[in-house]
């Protein structure tokens, strides 16, 4: 790996000053970045370690829960408030990576992790995300794990996170500190679709820092389920994942949240399916209908056509579990 400098500023102000310089990169848990540096995919001149910042707390706020950007994945997954109020998030976190990685990885880092597309990782292969203009290796290549929604001619990679799928479903907000102050971004607006700039994964500016998340209170805790379909029982990325959350009163769905992972360059919120479910009885037939609506516009490649079947089946399955009908 290329030699680099390393700093560990004591406060937020110093971090912001450091990351404003070109060639810098924030490191928190490092569970993805260090891999990428070893592979020569990323080669920063300077790492800015933010672990001294007081961003590890999980605390109740008036309308929900605040989670610091440096809270560990394992810490969030096992947090009593998270488990009580947002079990969907806890389930999604525990479906991701391995216990060792969850003990190291942070919430902010999980959001910032890069695709696991093999063409992105192998510097001997073309990849527009890693080296813009070299082409997309996956489009005509091995694309079993790739997108069926929202891809572009330049890139068909998917975002690998489980946590982010749950956060997209839970209407979370991202808190971002810049030089000029704090801004708030809807979680679903944080990640980008590839378009013509697949090198950009998200809308965080180079000189900005994620400080935390806010999740608003909701009525989904009783009826939520995270389903992850994968090639082995643990430590595998999703073929398809579904975050399903329902608010059910007397068998009628008052409100619904649905998001999918493993299908797009960002966590894929399924608002049309949510709308369809609202006011309907919680039945498997209605879930299947919602799944059909959710799949509108999906398009597959050579190796991932199975996702056109697996995704709606998984949506139905996740909703069935969430509703307690399984």
């Amino acid at each position: 790996m290329k030699q680099f400098q390393y700093v560990r500023p004591a406060n937020q102000q110093s971090v912001l000053a450091a990351i404003a310089q070109p060639g810098t990169k924030i490191i928190a848990g490092g569970s993805n970045l260090v891999d990428l540096m070893k592979h020569g995919v990323m080669a920063p001149d300077k790492l800015v370690d933010i672990n001294k910042l007081p961003l590890r707390n999980i605390s109740g706020i008036s309308n929900g829960l605040h989670i610091g950007a440096l809270a560990l994945n394992s810490q969030v997954a096992e947090d009593q408030q998270v488990k009580t109020k947002f079990p969907l998030l806890s389930q999604a976190l525990n479906a991701g990576a391995s216990a060792q990685l969850r003990n190291m990885a942070t919430v902010g880092g999980n959001m910032m992790q890069r695709t696991r597309c093999p063409y992105f990782y192998d510097t001997a292969m073309p990849c527009n995300k890693r080296a813009p203009g070299t082409g997309c290796g996956a489009k005509e290549g091995f694309n079993r794990m790739h997108a069926i929604f929202g891809f572009s001619d330049k890139c068909i990679a998917v975002h690998p996170s489980d946590m982010c799928v749950a956060l997209a479903a839970l209407d979370a907000t991202v808190l971002i500190q810049g030089k000029k102050g704090v801004r708030k971004l809807k979680f679903t607006d944080f990640h980008r679709l590839p378009g013509v700039t697949p090198e950009l994964d998200n809308n965080l500016a180079k000189d900005e820092l994620i400080t935390g998340l806010e999740i608003p209170n909701n009525n989904f805790a009783q009826h939520s389920y995270y389903l992850k379909v994968r090639d082995r029982a643990s430590y595998a990325f999703a073929l398809i994942s579904v975050a399903a959350a329902l608010d059910i009163h007397n068998g009628i769905i008052k409100d619904a949240r649905l998001a999918m992972g493993g299908v797009a360059h960002k966590p894929w919120r399924l608002t049309a399916a949510e709308q369809l479910l609202k006011g309907k009885p919680a039945t498997v037939a209605n879930f299947e209908q919602a799944a059909q609506v959710a799949m509108q516009g999906a398009k597959a490649f050579k190796d991932n056509a199975f996702k056109l079947k697996m995704a709606p089946a998984s949506i139905t399955e996740a909703l069935t579990h969430a509703a307690g009908l399984a």
């Binding site: 696991r116 093999p118 001997a124 292969m125 290796g137 005509e140 290549g141």
Partner: peptide, 13 residues
């Protein structure tokens, strides 16, 4: 990937 003759999964992930 037979176009390139390279493995696309040459790691334990």
């Amino acid at each position: 990937d037979h176009r390139f003759g390279r493995y696309v999964n040459a790691d334990l992930a």
